[in-house]
Amino acid sequence: MSDPWNRIVKLHEVSRGPLKLTLEAGGAERADIARRLDLESLSSFRAEIVAAPWLDGLELSGRFDATVEQICGVSLEPFEASVTGDIAVRIVPAGSAHAPPPEEGDLEFDADSPDAPDVIADDAVNIAEYLVEHLSLELDPFPRKPGVTFDYAPPTEGLSPFAALRKLVEPKA
C-alpha cells in the first residue's frame, strides 16, 4: 500500500505572508488517488496553489490540472480525459471566532453567499487532500468517451417478455 499524498502547511507558516506552492503527485501517489476515486489511472496531477493568511486561518487558491483514465458508461471502453479546476477554500482553527456556529435544526442554503470556512482540529492543513477532494468534484459521474452515443430502441410489442402473459389475460374474440 502506498503512502497517501501529503503536503502539510502549518497556519503559522503563512502568518508572515503568502506561500506559492507547486504540487505534483508522483507515481505511487497517483496510483493511490486513482484507486480512491475509482479511476482506471491518473497519469498526471499538478497544481499551482497560493496559501495566504486569512483572519486567524488561511486561504487556499489556485488551479490544478490532471489527466484521468475512466471507463465509458456506454461502451465500457477506457478513455483519457483532461480535468482542470480551481480551488478556493478558507480554513480556520477549531475554536476560532470566525468558525461557523454549530448547526441546529433545518439548514438554510443560500447559493449567493460565500461558503463558510472549513474548521480544522489543529494548526496543520493537508493541501494535497483538498486537491484530491476538488479533483473528485470535477470528475464526470457518468463518463462518456468522445464520439460515443447511446442509441436506445424500446422493445417491440411482440418481443416483450410480458407479451405471452398478455395473450393469456386478453379475452378471446
Rank of each mutant, 00 (worst) to 15 (best):
P161Y: 15
K167R: 15
F64V: 01
A25Q: 03
A66L: 10
A47T: 10
P155V: 05
V89M: 10
G17E: 08
V89N: 14
I127W: 04
G95C: 03
L131Y: 07
P102D: 07
C72A: 06
E133L: 04
A94D: 13
E157G: 00
D86S: 14
D112K: 10
L107A: 07
F79H: 02
P114I: 06
V132R: 11
A111E: 13
G17F: 04
W54N: 05
S160D: 09
V169L: 15
R144T: 11
P18W: 05
R36G: 06
T67D: 10
L23Q: 12
N6M: 11
R35G: 12
K20V: 15
F45T: 00
K145G: 12
R166T: 00
H12G: 00
D3E: 15
N6K: 13
A81R: 14
A124K: 08
F109D: 02
E24I: 00
S15F: 01
L11A: 09
W54F: 07
I8V: 14
I91C: 01
A34C: 02
A28Y: 01
P146R: 05
D115I: 05
E104M: 02
E40A: 10
D112P: 01
S113C: 00
H98R: 03
K10W: 05
D65Y: 11
P146Y: 09
L37I: 02
S43G: 03
S61K: 14
A116C: 02
E80N: 14
R16I: 00
S61V: 07
L137E: 00
P117K: 00
F162S: 02
I33A: 11
A28M: 13
V92E: 01
E129W: 03
L21P: 08
A25M: 04
V68K: 12
P93D: 01
P101D: 06
S61R: 14
G85Y: 04
L168R: 13
D56F: 12
L159F: 00
F150H: 10
H134Y: 12
P117T: 01
P102A: 02
E138D: 04
G26L: 07
E59G: 04
V148I: 15
W5I: 12
L60W: 06
P93F: 11
K10I: 06
G27L: 09
V125N: 15
P171L: 12
I87T: 06
R16K: 04
C72K: 07
P53C: 06
R35L: 13
F150G: 07
R144G: 08
A66R: 09
P93N: 04
G73W: 13
